[in-house]
């Protein structure tokens, strides 16, 4: 689990992993509705992470815990 931050706005989310200073666009997010938001997220660099599905945050950016499923590089 790593602390991450999601920035940007719906349709153009940006993923930020402070520990590795990795900033990248999110190309897909499994759930993206106001009630259910999160799940598996795919990054532009090919990496995938998982955030516990939750209700969509009222505003961004937001800091979350994420699990790395498959890191790029």
């Amino acid at each position: 689990m790593a602390n991450i931050m999601i920035q940007g706005s719906k349709g153009a989310y940006v993923f930020y992993l402070p520990k590795r200073d990795l900033e990248d666009a999110i190309v897909s997010m499994e759930f993206d509705t106001p009630e259910k938001w999160g799940g598996e997220i795919k990054l532009n660099n090919g990496g995938t992470y998982y955030i516990e599905p939750q209700t969509a945050p009222a505003r961004l950016p937001i800091s979350l815990r994420a699990k790395r499923l498959d890191a790029a590089e």
């Binding site: 931050m5 930020y16 950016p61």
Partner: peptide
């Protein structure tokens, strides 16, 4: 940039 991101959040 770190502190800027924090203040944004």
């Amino acid at each position: 940039n770190y502190i800027a991101r924090h203040m944004e959040e």
